[in-house]
Simulated scan of single mutants.
Amino acid sequence: MSFFERVVDWVVALMDVIGAPGVGAAILLENVFPPIPSELVLPLAGFAAQQQKFGVVEALVWATAGSLAGAWLLYGLGRAFGAERLARIADRIPLTEAGDVHRAVAWFDRHGAKAIFLGRLVPGVRSLISIPAGIDRMNPLTFTGFTLLGSAIWNTLLIGAGYLLGTRWFLVEEYIGVVSKVVYVILVGLAVFVLWYLIRRQRRAAHAAAGVGQDEDD
């Protein structure tokens, strides 16, 4: 049995046992355990609603509640870790420095609300975006509001698609899976760029230090 089939069986069993709250529980786990994809759970919930196992609005409410609970859990982890501790770790890691963390936090201060809202609509990012919000200690009300808004839109689109597609609900996961792969490629590209930038910065710093040393010898 494939991973896809095991997840489907588990979600179906969960919804059969506890109904719509099972959708919320599955989405909560999806936030902290990404291998359980919301693009699989939510369309399946829409199909279950079409089969009148529970109401579509009920599914949406529980899914959004699960999204918020999972987001708050990751936000709490980021907040507990904190920017200062992360900065101290960055100082010990080759190529990075505390200033990198402070610049990232400053960026999140300026664009955090938009990042939270848009991040909740991007596969592969929607869960993890809560961690930098916690590190930045974003205003809890702002975090909650934009998380709810982004999550409600995402959940509505996927549950609605599953409801309309019926027995073909699995097509949603197939199409969004393509988007997820594109996002992962972009993220890998960004990681490579950041690594290149850090190596280049370190080499420049080494050349500058060598130049200063030569000037002092002269």
Score class of each variant (00 low, 15 high):
residue 12 V to R: 12
residue 12 V to F: 00
residue 15 M to T: 15
residue 17 V to S: 02
residue 19 G to Y: 03
residue 24 G to F: 01
residue 29 L to V: 11
residue 33 F to T: 01
residue 34 P to R: 00
residue 41 V to Y: 02
residue 43 P to C: 04
residue 44 L to H: 00
residue 44 L to T: 03
residue 47 F to L: 02
residue 55 G to N: 04
residue 58 E to C: 11
residue 65 A to G: 13
residue 66 G to C: 09
residue 69 A to Q: 04
residue 72 W to S: 08
residue 76 G to R: 08
residue 78 G to S: 11
residue 99 G to M: 12
residue 100 D to A: 10
residue 100 D to S: 12
residue 101 V to R: 14
residue 102 H to L: 12
residue 102 H to T: 15
residue 104 A to F: 09
residue 105 V to C: 06
residue 109 D to G: 15
residue 109 D to T: 12
residue 111 H to N: 12
residue 121 L to E: 05
residue 123 P to H: 02
residue 125 V to H: 02
residue 126 R to Y: 10
residue 127 S to T: 12
residue 127 S to G: 06
residue 131 I to C: 00
residue 141 L to H: 07
residue 142 T to A: 08
residue 145 G to R: 14
residue 146 F to M: 09
residue 149 L to R: 02
residue 155 N to G: 02
residue 163 Y to K: 06
residue 171 L to R: 10
residue 172 V to C: 06
residue 174 E to Q: 13
residue 176 I to Y: 11
residue 176 I to N: 06
residue 178 V to S: 00
residue 181 K to G: 06
residue 182 V to W: 09
residue 189 G to L: 07
residue 191 A to Q: 07
residue 194 V to N: 08
residue 195 L to Q: 08
residue 195 L to C: 10
residue 197 Y to T: 13
residue 199 I to R: 15
residue 199 I to M: 08
residue 200 R to E: 01
residue 203 R to G: 01
residue 206 A to T: 10
residue 214 Q to S: 15
